[in-house]
Design a protein around this nucleic acid. Structure first.
Length: 646
DNA sequence: GACCACCAGA
């Protein structure tokens, strides 16, 4: 107020008072007599300054501010906050600093509101140190000051510091609000922290805020705790689109695509219109579950929207991961804009579908006409090399990535190289590669080596790799199973028994094999040894018919793979009822002319099922696509796209 | 007048 009255007084000749209590006949209900226009000001005018702050142009506003300063004048805080907004819009850091200087030129801190604006301004310019300086010098701080800093620290991944500030803020007696919590939730680094913050939220009575809820759902699902995430969602009375997107995204990301798609249907029934966020999540769900038909429906939905790069990329990935490369390629050709993600998706997609040479060709044209490859692009390129046994090409790309693209080889690249060498049987060299790495090898690298040892039946090295994995992840069922399979391969039964015992002792259980496919808008799941499918009788008949037909072609069940299995009841897991065989039989029964059968598996495909699928694809003249957790197998005319190399 | 959430490639 002091500032305001001083500035009004300095506008030129004093005006007559508008309201005078000593004037007897005047009341508020009478019209105010017109005030004579003041002569044009010789001093800078606060009014024109305010107008310029709000509407620009910025240089004019800055010039008037300088002349106000020369006259020792100050405008109202709101004008300055408008001016700061103007600076932010223009990206003018120098002007922003000048304003800051002007506001603190009399040696006093600006008022609380303006200091908050200044902190926010520095944060938006990415100048955290300067923001912190203003924040630290503030004689008093309110919830906005604290929240601005907390949010800035969280965004910059300085999570511990953000959490510390939450503590300090409460020590200072300031109550966090919904803004504070929706920011700080992203700073949780562990589920435990999230639980305690959630407790605080309930304690402060802020759980009903929509923003807080969507953050909670989001963070719970990032930690894989969908149960709590869904509870927060289900307790809501009024939901908005973002909350729906959060929960759908949560399930899509956690791999429960079925729930994600189901919630998407519910959302549509509830009358919400999907946006880009919803559709990318649903596409991710389709991608994860290989739901091509559903994905195509989403594609139709996408066409109603304005063309969008993110959605196009998501569609591209969906078509690649569903093994539908023709559609992926058609989309890629049609895309009006392609970024490094589009190219990388296509490069990895081709490689995952066994088209490594096409993948490398695409990479070569990317180098000429596309964007600059990044870290992930090179992962795709090396993946292509390793899955096609292109050892020399892989070595070349690995060696030259630093020089050609300035990309330092990372963990994933080393992983691909170990895979490349391992698959090609160069196991010793792969081990040397691991030992020469700049990083400490993680379980992924050792697991890659272990896989290669299995293919090339190197029992000693396998045992070494498995032990390294179990040092890092002592309850990892996959490793026990792989190790026991390797021992079984070389008929070292006592070692097999030892591994089984270790599993029993540690309470490690084998995850049952599971395959699923989409038939008639429904997902049918088959679990090894589980005969509960309502049509199981016909499925078994069909399976027997298929076995009969391929036996004529020389199919002999490879019983090695039975011996591998570790489950409690070997009978249950007998070869014929492996989940992928049941799924293939069911797929053949329900197949549409000209359309391939698409099956998804939770475990790697076994050698016997691989041979089975190849022959069925031939006798039934039907393309079969099986996606396991690592790659695709496209069976056609008695061969597989992986070239029996997996 | 200042501070808040969801979505794409390994």
């Amino acid at each position: 107020m002091k500032l305001l009255s001083r500035s009004i007084l300095s506008l030129g000749p004093p005006r007559p008072p508008l309201l005078s209590l000593s004037f007897p006949s005047f009341s508020l209900f009478h019209t105010i007599p017109p005030v004579p226009n003041p002569p044009p000001p010789h001093h800078p005018s606060i009014e024109s300054f305010s107008h310029l702050c709000l509407h620009g142009p910025l240089p004019a506003a800055m010039a008037v501010m300088a002349s106000l300063q020369a006259h020792g004048l100050r405008a109202d805080p709101i004008s300055y906050s408008h001016l700061i907004k103007l600076c932010l819009n223009h990206g003018s850091i120098d002007d922003a600093r000048l304003i800051h200087h002007h506001l603190s030129s009399d040696g006093h801190c600006p008022k609380l509101f303006l200091s908050n604006t200044l902190v926010g301004m520095y944060v938006k310019f990415g100048l955290l140190d300067e923001a912190r300086k203003v924040f630290d010098q503030m004689p008093e701080r309110n919830v906005v000051s604290w929240t601005t800093m907390i949010s800035a620290l969280t965004n910059l991944e300085q999570k511990e510091e953000a959490l510390m500030l939450l503590l300090e803020m409460q020590r200072d007696g300031i109550r966090p609000n919904m803004y504070t919590f929706s920011s700080i939730l992203r700073a949780c680094m562990a589920l435990r922290t999230l639980w305690s913050i959630h407790c605080c939220i309930i304690k402060f009575g802020l759980e009903s805020d929509v923003f807080v809820r969507s953050s909670l759902i989001d963070i719970y699902s990032k930690f894989g705790d969908l149960e709590h995430g869904y509870r927060v969602f289900s307790e809501m009375v009024t939901r908005d689109l973002v909350v729906w997107n959060s929960i759908i995204g949560g399930f899509a990301q956690s791999g429960d695509g079925y729930r994600a798609v189901d919630l998407f249907m519910q959302m549509k029934r509830a009358g919400f219109l999907a946006n880009q966020g919803t559709l990318t999540s649903v596409l991710r769900a389709c991608t994860g579950m290989v739901l091509l038909e559903m994905g195509k429906q989403v594609h139709v939905h996408v066409l109603k929207y304005e063309r969008d790069l993110i959605l196009d990329n998501a569609l591209l990935d969906m078509y690649c991961k569903c093994g539908s490369l023709e559609e992926a390629d058609a989309l890629f050709q049609r895309m009006p804009e392609r970024d490094v993600i589009s190219w990388s998706t296509m490069i990895s997609g081709l490689a995952q579908n066994g088209r490594s040479l096409d993948s490398l060709r695409l990479f070569e044209s990317m180098k000429v006409i596309g964007p600059i490859p990044n870290y992930i692009t090179i992962v795709g390129v090396l993946f292509a090399c390793s899955h096609a046994g292109l050892v020399e090409e892989g070595r070349y790309y690995f060696r030259s990535m630093q020089k050609l693209f300035g990309i330092e080889p990372g963990r994933e690249h080393y992983g691909c190289m170990v895979d490349l060498l391992g698959r090609a049987g160069k196991l010793e060299e792969a081990v040397k590669f691991i030992h020469d790495m700049n990083f400490k090898p993680d379980s992924v690298i050792w697991r890659t080596l272990l896989g290669a040892c299995r293919v090339h039946r190197n029992v000693n090295l396998a045992a070494y790799a498995a032990k390294e994995i179990l040092k890092l992840e002592p309850g990892d069922e996959g490793t026990y199973i792989l190790l026991s399979n390797i021992y079984a391969d070389s008929r070292q039964w006592s070692d097999v028994e030892q591994v089984r015992k270790a599993m029993r002792d540690r309470g490690v259980r084998k995850e049952p094999g599971r395959s699923w496919l989409e038939v008639g808008k429904q997902i049918h799941v088959f679990i090894v040894g589980d005969m509960s499918h309502p049509q199981m009788d016909i499925i078994v008949k069909e399976l027997n018919r298929l076995v009969g037909r391929i036996t004529e072609l020389g199919y002999v069940p490879n019983t090695d793979f039975v011996l591998h299995d570790l489950g409690q009841e070997q009978k249950e897991e007998s070869l014929q009822y492996h989940s992928e065989k049941l799924a293939i039989a069911f797929g053949i029964m329900n197949s549409t002319m000209g359309k391939p059968i698409r099956i998804m598996k939770n475990l790697r495909i076994c050698g016997d099922c691989h041979a089975f699928a190849k022959l069925v694809a031939k006798t039934e003249d039907k393309a079969i696509i099986i996606r396991d957790p690592v790659r695709f197998h496209q069976f056609q005319d008695g061969v597989c796209s992986c070239g029996d190399y997996w």
